[in-house]
């Protein structure tokens, strides 16, 4: 049996990817399960989905704790969540990452087998938008087998209708462009630590240590007003962030008024300041700034 965990963001189609793969495996006569992991987070938030494939009937209905393979749909997740969490030593990582960013994978090299592909570029070139959930499956098939490109046609047709051809092309291209290196000779068992502050809901709960039954507030109330501020939604951004052109900004405050996430705020001396911790990157501020002072650009980590 092979167990696979998909990492994506709400709205990126990680669940669909797991589903398509399961349908294909079932068409091949195998047994498969695809299932999502639901939480309160919404579009943009890091999410996971799971896939099990086996030659034998599957009698498990539990979450996957130590996957054989992880698939990462969104390159911005690599620094944000511990995508290798629980991954078996020597396990496979299928990563969507531009060639220029592959340095980030070095830390995984001696523990896991890392197959990388620039799925975002392939998706833009084939489908027209950077939705990588079909391209990445091409890489997964190259890296792990599971099913064939041929079998994928049926499920893809069913899911995407007239858009199936483009998605199949993305699948094919990703299959071809994926490099699968040798497995590390003696993988070390230790998984790398999470990149940044833990950001999954579960981790957060653990940290808060508010889970012991006789320490809960009466009726499970929350008496920490405004405490979501401890949860930084800045890591939901995946398509750039707002940059304020100080020359143009007149501190009119419209971006502050229109920001759903309170991420554009006045400083004490009346200037507008962007808050990287909470900005989800919606782009409303840039669209609504009457002076055209805000532009959404890819994040450069120097700033």
């Amino acid at each position: 049996m092979m167990e696979i965990r998909f990492h994506g963001r709400g709205g990126q189609g990680a669940v669909t990817a797991a589903e398509l793969m399961a349908r294909a495996a079932i068409l091949d006569g195998k047994y498969a399960q695809a299932f999502p992991n639901f939480g309160p987070e919404r579009r943009g938030a890091p999410v996971t989905a799971f896939l099990r494939v086996s030659e034998q009937p599957i009698y498990l209905r539990e979450k996957i704790e130590s996957p054989d393979t992880v698939v990462v749909l969104d390159p911005t997740l690599i620094d944000l969540v511990n995508v290798a969490d629980g991954l078996k030593p020597g396990g496979m990582m299928v990563m969507n990452l531009a060639a220029s960013g592959r340095g980030a994978l070095a830390k995984y090299g001696d523990q896991f087998q890392v197959a990388a592909v620039d799925a975002s570029r392939i998706a833009v070139e084939t489908i027209g938008i950077p939705v990588t959930n079909t391209a990445i499956l091409g890489s997964l098939i190259k890296a792990c087998g599971i099913t064939s490109l041929k079998t994928m046609e049926g499920p893809m047709q069913r899911r995407f209708g007239r858009l199936a051809a483009k998605n199949l092309l993305a699948l094919q291209r990703a299959f071809e462009e994926t490099e699968v290196p040798e497995a590390p000779a003696a993988p070390s068992p230790a998984a790398p630590a999470a990149g940044q502050e833990g950001c999954t809901y579960a981790e957060l709960l653990q940290r808060e240590a508010l889970l012991v039954w006789d320490q809960l507030q009466i009726g499970c109330d929350i008496d920490l007003p405004g405490s979501t501020a401890a949860f930084h939604t800045g890591n939901w951004r995946s398509a750039g962030r707002p940059y304020i052109d100080r020359e143009k900004c007149v501190s009119c405050g419209f971006c502050h008024v229109y920001c759903p996430d309170l991420a554009m705020n006045f400083t004490d001396d009346g200037a507008i300041e962007w808050d990287h911790r909470y900005c989800k990157g919606c782009g409303i501020c840039a669209e609504e700034c009457p002076k055209g002072a805000i532009s959404m650009r890819e994040e450069s980590h120097e700033q």
Binding site: A202, Q217, I218, G219, D221, I222
Partner: peptide, 26 residues
């Protein structure tokens, strides 16, 4: 405890798998 603007609290929040059991135990 009560709904009081001087001591704001949230009554009836969203409780996921991590806390629902403990809430029931209480």
């Amino acid at each position: 405890r009560l709904l009081d603007p001087d001591h704001p609290r949230s009554i009836g929040p969203f409780g996921a798998q991590d806390v629902y059991t403990e809430a029931k135990m209480q």
